[in-house]
C-alpha cells in the first residue's frame, strides 16, 4: 500500500469541485429522469404528484416483453463475445510477443470505438441484402437456389450487427485483468503438476473474474441500448428497448419512457447480483 502523498497542490480540492459539478450536471438529471416515472407532466411542464400510471401503461402496452427480448439478445451477444473474446485476450496477454501481428490486433480492437454507428449498420445491410455479396457467393456456390431472406431484417441480422461493435469492449478489460496476474503463478501452477485446463479453471478464470465482469457489463449495456442496429438491420420484426424509448419520447410520453428506464435499471441490478455472489464464492479459498 502506497502512502497518499502529502503535497496536494490543490488537486484534491479541484477534484472535489469537479465531483460536485458532476453531481449537479450528471447525477441530478439522471436521478430526476428516473423520478419522472412516478411524477406527472403535461408537455414540458412538470406537475408534482405521485402516480403509477406510467407503469400500468408499460405493462398494458407489452413493453415489459420488449425489455426481456432486448435483454435476451444482449445476453446472447455478450456470451458470444465472452466465449470468443477470452481466448483472444489470453493470447494477447500471455502468448503474443510484441510484433507486427500483435500491433495489428491492437489496431483492429481500437478502431471500432471510433467508427460511425450508421456507417457500420449501413455497410452490414448492404452485405446481407438479397442482392449483396453474401447471397451472391452462396448462389454462385449453389449452396442455395434463391437469396436467403433471413440474413437481413431479422434477429439474426441484429445479432451480427451487435457482435462487431461490442467485441472490443469485452477484450480490453479481460486483457487488463490478465496482465495483472503475476507471471510466476503460471510457472508455479505448471510446476505443481496442474494440467492446462486445471490452470485455466482454478487459477486464470478466478483471477480474471473482475475483468470478465467488466467486459460483460461493457458489452451487455451498449447492446441493450443500441438504436442503430435494430433500426437499420432489424426491420421492425422485434421491438427493442431503444425503439420503445424513441417511440415514447417522440410522442412526448416522458413519464412512460422514464418508467421504462427504471425497469432497465432494475434489470441491470438483478443481473449484477449473481455476479457479485459468484465473485464472493470464488474469492473464498478453494477446498477442492
Amino acid at each position: 500500500m502506497v502512502r497518499a502523498p502529502g503535497r496536494s497542490d490543490g488537486a484534491v480540492a479541484q477534484t472535489g469541485l469537479l465531483a460536485a459539478g458532476w453531481g449537479v450536471a450528471v447525477l441530478l438529471p439522471l436521478l430526476s429522469g428516473l423520478l419522472l416515472a412516478i411524477m406527472q407532466h403535461r408537455g414540458l411542464h412538470l406537475r408534482w404528484g405521485f402516480s403509477l400510471a406510467a407503469y400500468r401503461d408499460l405493462v398494458a402496452t407489452g413493453r415489459i416483453g420488449v425489455v426481456l427480448d432486448t435483454a435476451w439478445m444482449a445476453a446472447l451477444v455478450s456470451v458470444l463475445c465472452l466465449v470468443f473474446g477470452f481466448p483472444l485476450a489470453l493470447w494477447l496477454a500471455r502468448d503474443a510477443r510484441s510484433g507486427f501481428a500483435m500491433q495489428l490486433v491492437w489496431l483492429c480492437l481500437t478502431v471500432p470505438f471510433f467508427l460511425d454507428p450508421s456507417a457500420r449498420g449501413l455497410a452490414l445491410r448492404l452485405m446481407l441484402s438479397a442482392g449483396g455479396p453474401v447471397n451472391s457467393v452462396l448462389l454462385h456456390l449453389h449452396l442455395v437456389h434463391q437469396p436467403v431472406r433471413w440474413l437481413l431484417f431479422s434477429d439474426f441480422a441484429v445479432m451480427i450487427g451487435l457482435l462487431g461493435p461490442n467485441f472490443p469492449n469485452m477484450i480490453w478489460p479481460i486483457y487488463l485483468s490478465l496482465t495483472l496476474i503475476d507471471p510466476a503463478l503460471f510457472d508455479a501452477s505448471r510446476d505443481l503438476g496442474a494440467s492446462p485446463s486445471q490452470t485455466l479453471r482454478l487459477m486464470i478464470l478466478p483471477l480474471a473474474l473482475p475483468g470478465i465482469l467488466a467486459g460483460v457489463i461493457m458489452t451487455f449495456i451498449p447492446a441493450l441500448g443500441d438504436n442503430v442496429v435494430p433500426d437499420l438491420l432489424g426491420g421492425g420484426r422485434t421491438e427493442y428497448i431503444a425503439d420503445s424509448v424513441m417511440a415514447l419520447s417522440t410522442s412526448m410520453n416522458y413519464a412512460g419512457a422514464s418508467a421504462l428506464a427504471t425497469v432497465v435499471f432494475a434489470l441491470l441490478g438483478l443481473l449484477l447480483l449473481p455476479f457479485f455472489t459468484l465473485r464472493r464464492m470464488l474469492a473464498r479459498p478453494a477446498t477442492a
Binding site: 439522471l30 428516473l34 414540458l44 451498449p222 441500448g225 438504436n227 428497448i241 424509448v245 428506464a261 432497465v264
Partner: peptide, 17 residues
C-alpha cells in the same frame, strides 16, 4: 447505463429540472 436511456434521462433532467 445504455446510451439511449442516458440520452432520455439527461434530456428529461436538463429540460424539466
Amino acid at each position: 447505463i445504455p446510451g439511449t436511456v442516458t440520452g432520455l434521462m439527461l434530456f428529461a433532467g436538463y429540460r424539466f429540472v
